[in-house]
Design a protein around this nucleic acid. Structure first.
Lengths: 236, 236
DNA sequence: CGACAGGTTGAGTGAGCTCAAGTCGGGTGG
DNA sequence: CCACCCGACTTGAGCTCACTCAACCTGTCG
């Protein structure tokens, strides 16, 4: 526990009135700061992260291009930090008179997507086993990044662990196990190929009874054809 | 797993255009229904509850008098059910033109509190041990119900368990243990007195090293004086 | 009175945590 | 260029906490 949370310096390099850049690991705002404005990601990846008083942390979301974060009021409940180098657009908080200003994008929609995002986080944490959480996380991330082929995960194992409520050891072991079973391929720690999204979907929904029966033949499509589970958390 | 979720009948007893009553256990809306309106609790307790395809459930919140639920769009991510007999006020969803109608209370504030609520749920689930989760839940519930003396918990052990991501056994054992340690008193399953909120706060934040040292003398105030943890999730 | 639902408690098991090496790649300095 | 370090990741061994299985208690209802 008590992992360091990136360097603190907060050396914001102002580019213009509303465009900001942060280096990898820099803090964008701190938990408990008055929530004066919210942010849209132009490029890069951001994490929001709640610290408990015992030092352990809970990542409440990852945010990619065009996602918005920092909408809670009146204080930020989580800090925000740059996972990679990021470029942000800062939006002044003017909810009351939003529509008169015109330049502020619809706050209602933004709050809605923040709520979806929080719920997606709950649904990840609500899963019981490490395998289910990791599988669900991979699927959600792949969908968000709009991937065909391999995903480039911008965040570390430690970030994933603190997002899923696991340790880095368990995350690493679980990924290795998924790779061993042939569901994913690990091409380096950050680059992951989802070989069998159907099987992952099964795992994510509690079906850990997918034993060997399907290793050589990737006929995953015939397992539970009408998987009409709700698609929640469309965060964009 | 696969617990029953109250009877389904949805026998809404319409009282007027917008006031509805439900009996204990009745479903108010189902997960996946189009989210046509949201609700305010007039009296009673409501739970919102997300079902996974393996049948296990995650309660995403409890709602008491004056709380609002069902604000997500375009589909309800969780079903809503009456924990006790409840009276609700139904509010038509008219977010786009909300303020013109006048009668619809500020949707922005409502979305904000829904977001707080979801975050509070995340912060509960983010806690690691059963003791921490149960202690945090008791404190949050006591605060919400504005209690001095004993809380009357409207929900069952099963509801608490599915809210905290534990089993009813673990919840029950943990409560017994807290009672044995003198931090709470169990006056029947639903009626709980918080004898030592300070100690519970310690437990909730990871300090399970409160051993005996404080059983007879309730001098809790000298343990970690500046406990300036953020007060999150003010859901009202 | 029996049936049943909700709750409590015990015994044993196992998934995930802790502790501890060990690997790998990139940077830095001699 | 190589030695060294450091951070991120992986992997093994053992332990522990919460789950599973099972019994039992209590109050309510027909």
């Amino acid at each position: 526990m008590l992992r360091l949370c990136g360097q603190q310096g907060t050396a914001r390099m102002r580019v213009s009135e509303t465009v900001l850049k942060f280096r990898k690991g820099e803090m964008i705002y701190a938990q408990g700061d008055p929530a004066t404005d919210w942010f849209e990601v132009v490029s890069g990846t951001v994490r929001t992260c709640h610290l408990y008083s015992d030092g352990h942390r809970q990542l409440t979301g990852f945010f990619y291009t065009s996602d918005v974060f920092g909408v809670e009021t009146p204080y930020y409940q989580s800090s925000a930090e740059a996972v990679t180098a990021v470029t942000l657009r800062r939006c002044m908080r003017s909810f009351g008179q939003a529509d008169q200003l015109g330049e502020v994008a619809a706050p209602l929609g933004i709050l809605q997507s923040a709520l979806s995002n929080a719920q997606a986080c709950i649904f990840l944490l609500g899963r019981r086993t490490a395998t289910e959480r990791v599988a669900a996380f991979l699927l959600a991330t792949a969908r968000r990044l709009g991937v065909r082929g391999s995903i480039r995960l911008p965040m570390s194992r430690s970030d994933i662990a603190d997002h899923l409520g696991l340790t880095i050891h368990t995350v690493s072991r679980t990924l290795s196990e998924l790779s061993r079973r042939g569901f994913i391929a690990l091409d380096g720690p950050q680059s992951i190929t989802l070989c069998s999204p159907e099987a992952l979907r099964q795992l994510a929904e509690g079906g850990d009874d997918i034993i060997e029966s399907r290793l050589p033949s990737p006929s995953a499509s015939l397992m539970r054809p009408g998987n009409a589970a709700l698609v929640y958390g469309a965060q964009s």
